[in-house]
Amino acid sequence: MELATLLQPIDRPWEADALPRWDGPDTLVLAFGSPELMDAPGPLRHLQATYPSSCLLGCSTAGEIHGTLVHDHQLSVAVARFANTRLRFADTAVSGPEDSEAAGAALADQLRGPGLRAVLVLSDGLRVNGSELARSLSQHLGPGVAVTGGLAGDGARFQRTWVLTAEGPQSGHFCAVGFYGNALRHCHGSKGGWDTFGPARQVTRAKGNVLFELDGKPALPLYKSYLGERASGLPATALLFPLSLQDPEGRNEDIVRTILSVDEEAQSLTFAGDIPEGHLVHFMRANFDRLVDGAGAAAQGLGDPRLSPTLAVAVSCVGRRLVLGERVDEEVEATLEALPLGTLQLGFYSYGELCPQATGACGLHNQTMTLTVFQEA
């Protein structure tokens, strides 16, 4: 595998020799960029013109990760030319979260084939039920295929996101790349670092990813009571106080859910993934040091130090960035420090992270640092 990464300001022309001339069907181009590229897609069009035969995968962000730094208004790019790994691109359009299950099946149908080892998927960050997408992909691809990725971001605005398609950056799309062959070395990790507080409350009324009642009471007023004066900043301030979701029978590991929107009339909260009735929830808040330690733990043990080069795709949650503030670079420094020497890292801040759970099936995570590492034997 040959590998290069670069950071491109979206308001400047590309330098003549900035991009390696590695176009071909076994070349992967990753591009994580500013939401503004939806209206001014010139840098993305340049990538597509430079790599017409390659697999291009990208999305909008709540911050672009490149090396040990987090940026805004940039395009973070990786170009990886594989020697013995085949690639295939898949794309499907959606109109809303209710299409997520069917979209997962459509992507799986396009990617399923002999030698499929891993899938990297990016979705619209707002028109999605991440739980349904992850569940559908795992179900239709079957065991043995690792699915990782994330939900596109739009800073703290929650207005629109884009995913890179053959027609350019578009809303309402889910895209993925499949990796085929025994030469691929692929691993992943995901950790949080949030603390719970307050009593456990039971989900007494919910539908899909919309929560209506906790302990028989309207969910939105109860949640606002925990936020206090921060409630006036919803939904953005909800990123600072996610929910921990616990199976009451203890069959699965606890997961974290982030709020995407609120409905004042229905007094409900809409999340990035499912909120099953009967589950228990805890409110959560940040611990700065534990967030950074969690990021480092996500990278621990990933990758084979004997193989080079190494590409690490980091997908962290926008909520972590808001909490860490000026310290946000510390968590991407922590991941790179734990990865094999010489690893090239890029990624983005997201509205949700996709990564296998303890069961092996892909699941939606929120408020985590999730890493996917690619090497080739």
Rank of each mutant, 00 (worst) to 15 (best):
F348Y: 06
S261P: 09
R127D: 06
L30T: 01
E353K: 13
P143D: 09
I275S: 04
S100V: 15
R321H: 12
K191R: 08
E337M: 07
L141E: 03
N182W: 06
L214N: 01
T204F: 03
H365C: 05
G178F: 13
P340D: 10
H73I: 00
D99L: 15
D274H: 12
F271M: 12
D293T: 05
D91T: 03
G67E: 02
G113A: 02
A156L: 04
N129F: 00
G325H: 14
L307R: 06
Y51R: 01
A314F: 15
N287S: 11
N84F: 14
D39M: 07
T335P: 00
R88G: 08
F197K: 07
D154C: 07
P356G: 15
C55R: 14
H282A: 01
D17Y: 13
P199R: 04
S76F: 07
S54A: 15
P169V: 08
S131I: 02
K191I: 01
E326G: 15
P199L: 13
A361Q: 12
V315S: 11
P41F: 12
P309V: 06
L311Y: 15
A236Q: 09
V328S: 14
L137Y: 05
I10K: 08
T196K: 05
T270H: 09
L111D: 02
D39A: 15
Q139E: 10
P218S: 09
G273D: 09
L336R: 14
I275H: 13
R135T: 04
E330F: 00
P248D: 08
C187V: 12
V328T: 14
S100P: 04
L75Q: 02
A90E: 14
R45Y: 04
L341V: 13
L133E: 09
G352L: 00
G342E: 07
S244D: 01
G352M: 00
L151D: 15
L120G: 05
A90D: 14
A295R: 07
Y226R: 02
E264F: 01
P221E: 10
G250K: 15
E249M: 13
A156S: 08
E167H: 09
A49L: 14
G67T: 01
L245A: 09
A31G: 02
H365M: 11
V79K: 11
L47T: 03
H66V: 00
M1F: 02
Q375H: 11
G192F: 07
Y51A: 01
S100K: 08
A78P: 10
N209H: 15
Y180S: 14
T5I: 08
N209G: 02
P340W: 13
V373S: 04
V29Y: 06
F82P: 00
V147W: 08
T165Y: 08
E132I: 07
G142C: 05
L56S: 03
C317F: 10
T270C: 13
D289F: 03
V313R: 11
H173V: 00
V292F: 01
V328R: 13
D23C: 14
A314P: 05
L151H: 11
D274V: 07
G360T: 00
E326D: 15
L137T: 00
T92H: 03
I10S: 10
A106S: 04
S308Q: 13
N209V: 00
S268R: 09
V315G: 13
A377G: 06
Q8W: 06
L56M: 08
C355H: 15
D247H: 05
V328K: 13
R12K: 11
L222P: 03
V79P: 15
G216M: 03
L164V: 12
N129T: 04
E213D: 09
D263M: 06
A272Y: 06
L116K: 02
C317V: 04
